[in-house]
Design a protein around this nucleic acid. Structure first.
Lengths: 156, 156
DNA sequence: TAATAACCTACTGTTTTAGTCAATTATTAT
DNA sequence: ATAATAATTGACTAAAACAGTAGGTTATTA
């Protein structure tokens, strides 16, 4: 998988909108200032976020961006995949470059890891992040994992 | 975190040794052939694996590499950190580049994800991989996670 | 009609990845 | 002794990805 500043900035920016959006949409210039992220870089990111339907835009003065869905319907993995365009740890996509028979020896390991990461990131929603941010300094916050006991089962 | 072919090749190579090591140590040339990994690239990787004490080397004819510890005492995360020299998803290491107050808004999220990944990768040992590889085609293999219900608890 | 702000495309410097190449050192078999 | 083997070391490199910059266009509102 790929976890870069692109994904990190995207999550930060989405959280920023979720926190500051009220009657008016939030401008990229505002996000840029508050989070110290380059405006042009934000534009690139939001081009993708908009195409994936995560945000909606309003042009002209007083315009900006809004979160396009309910906050608990957007997961961190949604945001990262929107800007990073792949969240895959296998690299041997479909038993391509493993010269022997089919998939490489460690294929199942990476596929399983991939599942773990995705399971976690898709279990944290924008709403969770907002709650966490608001409760900061107020004690302890717990990320709630969806369910328990989901072993990585591999069929040979 | 950083998950590249470097780490993948290292795990594959270690597994190869674990499978083929008997009375004789295993040569890099042999690994190179079986796993189609460049010999020179393997040399770089094993330089680090040796410095981390994961393998021991024997020079000269009949020489090669051996796994230096018990197979169940080497985890996948040990191997990856040995060659990749960082397994960190935060990037703001110690509240450096967050201009406001201390750590950035999403710091806890990445730290928590980091913990998840590390928890999983350190729970899979070389011995597990060997078992899995030997049991291949014999049905279903399950990676045993250490324990259950380990929520990501974040103190604000 | 002027300001605002999204939108789009192309370009760029730096770092990382994934190696290659060439030489050296230690060990064993002949 | 010496030749072959195999680890060990260090420097170098092409290509890709990352992290932006720059400059312009379009739509909307005051």
């Amino acid at each position: 998988m790929r976890l870069t500043t692109k994904g990190r900035f995207a999550v930060t920016a989405m959280l920023d909108i979720a926190l500051y959006e009220a009657d008016k949409p939030v401008t990229l210039a505002g996000i840029s200032e508050r989070q110290s992220i380059s405006l042009s870089y934000l534009e690139q990111l939001f081009s993708r976020l908009r195409k994936q339907g995560l945000v909606s835009s309003v042009r002209g003065p007083g315009g900006g961006y809004r979160i396009a869905k309910a906050h608990h319907d957007i997961s961190v993995s949604d945001i990262i995949t929107a800007v990073d365009e792949q969240i895959d740890a296998t690299q041997c996509g479909g038993n391509e470059n493993c010269h022997d028979e089919g998939r490489c020896m460690t294929h199942e390991l990476w596929a399983s890891l991939n599942g773990k990461i995705l399971e976690y990131l898709s279990g944290v929603s924008l709403a969770d992040m907002v709650d966490m941010q608001r409760n900061k300094g107020a004690g302890t916050v717990v990320f709630s994992p969806k369910k328990c006991g989901s072993e990585a089962t591999i069929a040979a």
